[in-house]
Amino acid sequence: MKEFKVTPIRNGTVIDHIDVGMALKVLRIIGVRNEVSSTVSVLMHVPSKKNNWKDVVKIEDRELDPKELDKIALISPDATINIIRDYNVAEKFVVEVPERVKGIMTCSNPGCITNKSEPVEPEFVVETKKPPALRCVYCDRMTTDIAENIV
């Protein structure tokens, strides 16, 4: 039987230790939809030394911006980012859940004023980091289902 392996990438980003099942959400966050000019590899439900299972996303010729990193941290606080340049790991770090988030998530409360046509960006205070629980600055409601509310 032929074995397929995901090959090392020359330049780009490897997002490792993604919470199992979250890889597709990560793709949505980094904007991988139809118009992608480079190779994107997704590994789902692979064995992990840290936890039992993990997801991994490799994206060639792309580095992530701070907003994307914040979003990944919120849905998968243990994810690690490996920035690859010329086949070498140029930088490696664990994502960091921010203290406050603004403009990257909607409030889960349909009755919240920020879900109406008001000229404000939803803003949250991070009350707990693992697992992330965010309190809306406006309506005070806690949001724990982050993945559903990321924009």
């Binding site: 409030c107 004023i113 920020t114 404000v120 406006y138 309506c139 409601r141």
Partner: peptide, 24 residues
């Protein structure tokens, strides 16, 4: 709507007193 008074506070220079915002 919940959070309306907090939002009003961001746009007003004068003090805003919340007299009830939805279920908030």
């Amino acid at each position: 709507q919940e959070g309306a008074a907090r939002l009003a506070g961001h746009f007003a220079e004068k003090p805003v007193i919340n007299a009830g915002d939805g279920a908030g």
